[in-house]
């Protein structure tokens, strides 16, 4: 009876550990994506700064696949701005997701810790018996 309960709890613990590792993977992924976006944001900001410094009549091209496509400066500017906005929004979203994940992680850790303790006490009880 006690041993079956113990087994069940151990299975439970295993499941939770798996969940936790999944969460940690998610967090790592989130970090990676965020890093990428941060770099892109920096790059876009640099581009915007340079575009702002250009004269009205400067030729701006965008590399699309193998070809350079001529673009209007104003258009390019608007595009970059939009891109920055998008990236910022994405970053914010990622931040929120990360926070959520971290909360989940701590709660999972707590649960696992408690389970471990219970299993230990069960084992101790078994050893005595």
């Amino acid at each position: 009876m006690a041993s079956s309960a113990l087994k069940e709890q151990q299975r439970d613990l295993e499941n939770k550990a798996n969940d936790l590792s999944k969460l940690q993977k998610d967090i790592a992924k989130n970090h990676q994506v965020r890093k990428k976006y941060t770099i892109q944001l920096g790059e876009n900001e640099l581009v915007l700064k340079e575009l702002d410094l250009l004269q009205e009549d400067a030729n701006v091209y965008k590399l699309i696949g193998p070809v350079l496509v001529k673009q209007d400066l104003a258009e390019a500017n608007a595009n970059v701005r939009k891109r920055i906005e998008y990236i910022s929004a994405e970053l914010k979203r990622l931040d929120a997701a990360l926070q959520d994940l971290e909360e989940k992680q701590t709660s999972k850790k707590d649960a696992i810790y408690k389970l471990q303790q219970r299993i230990q006490s069960l084992q101790a009880g078994k050893a005595k018996a």
């Binding site: 876009n44 640099l46 581009v47 030729n59 091209y61 970059v80």
Partner: peptide, 22 residues
């Protein structure tokens, strides 16, 4: 190349300025 696949026609002097900012 300004980044994000944007290119711009510049003179040597202007290019130098951009590079210095970088």
């Amino acid at each position: 190349l300004l980044g994000e696949n944007y290119y711009v026609d510049r003179t040597s002097k202007q290019t130098t300025e951009i590079l210095k900012r970088r």
